[in-house]
Design a protein around this nucleic acid. Structure first.
Lengths: 176, 176
DNA sequence: CAGTCCATGTAAGAAGTTACATGATTCT
DNA sequence: AGAATCATGTAACTTCTTACATGGACTG
């Protein structure tokens, strides 16, 4: 995942490992963050694979290693981005995809959003059913915390679906 | 985290590694899950530390290794559970804590919930401010996806706070 | 009698973190 | 002059997953 985040940031402009960390802190830290100990080795790997290239510069009397994305890197990134979003139940990884959907053709973004909604709806229906079963079988007041986490789950899935639908309306409403 | 989940499940009743996996699938998979490859080694570690003990039984002609929690394991688990909940921005780990809050004294549960709410409120305020800055500085229609992920973030934090407040009301309203 | 489920376990590898090491520059 | 920030990097470690290996019991 980290390697794709890096490529995604480099789609915008070339920058150093340190700059990447700053962007993460400022822009994505509420759903994704990484340490220097993983950023620098990731940059080395990406360069070795030919997805990025570096140039050592001295900017305002500070040594910097500026990385830029290659044609191969761009196509590698877009191939990944256009694949269906895998919903992780335990992490907020889906936001990583949406954050970079600016680089996807509108039609593809709409298609993937719809596929994603269907996947989350399926999970919502499963959990909703389990929640109903619990409501029927037990006195939920005796299991406040267990039941509340189920309520959390159901409402969380619904929240994601609503947000996706809002986003869908917005993109579909935009002038081509 | 996995070791505490296992201890939490064993607080209810003794069970095998296989049973633990079934409980995760049925009950916690929407916020936590683990593979056999991590469950079995975790059980070995926990037994080595003296937090659980095992007995090999043949139940309905099937070999099983049943684990039960020790006094030391219980106190180790409760010591962890009563500590302040660390909010992970990228994972749903806070639900793990709440799921087992049935084992915490009511007053402690209320205190930790309130502390947690304050932490999430602080994150909400930060992100809200950043969102306002973006709204002032840019035409958000040109950055639909970047802006939408921010809206997601703000609403997600608000969702958690609302859920916590509902839970708080419920526990406080319950007869002692 | 083949397939699925029950049941336990290991080995290799993925993907990160924390802590450390280094050194220049800028701020107070 | 000392602290904070800028900037890159490595080593050891943590914590998981995937894939494999094994074998008995049940099911159609």
């Amino acid at each position: 995942m980290l390697e794709y985040i890096i490529l995604g940031f480099l789609m915008r402009e070339e920058m150093s490992g340190y700059d990447l960390k700053q962007w993460m802190i400022n822009c994505t830290s509420y759903f994704f963050d990484a340490s220097f100990g993983s950023i620098y080795p990731a940059l080395k790997r990406l360069e070795k694979k030919g997805y990025i290239k570096s140039s050592e510069v001295v900017e305002s009397s500070k040594f910097k290693k500026i990385y830029s994305i290659t044609h191969m890197g761009k196509s590698h990134f877009l191939t990944w981005l256009e694949k269906p979003i895998i919903f992780s139940k335990t992490k907020q990884e889906h936001l990583v995809y949406f954050y970079f959907y600016q680089y996807l053709p509108k039609e593809r973004a709409i298609l993937n959003l719809k596929t994603f909604i269907i996947e989350v709806e399926s999970l919502l229906n499963q959990l909703s059913k389990e929640k109903s079963d619990v409501e029927e079988s037990y006195n939920v007041n005796q299991y406040t915390f267990l039941y509340s986490t189920m309520v959390y789950g159901v409402n969380y899935y619904q929240f994601i679906i609503n947000w996706c639908n809002d986003l869908l309306k917005q993109i579909e409403g935009e002038k081509v």
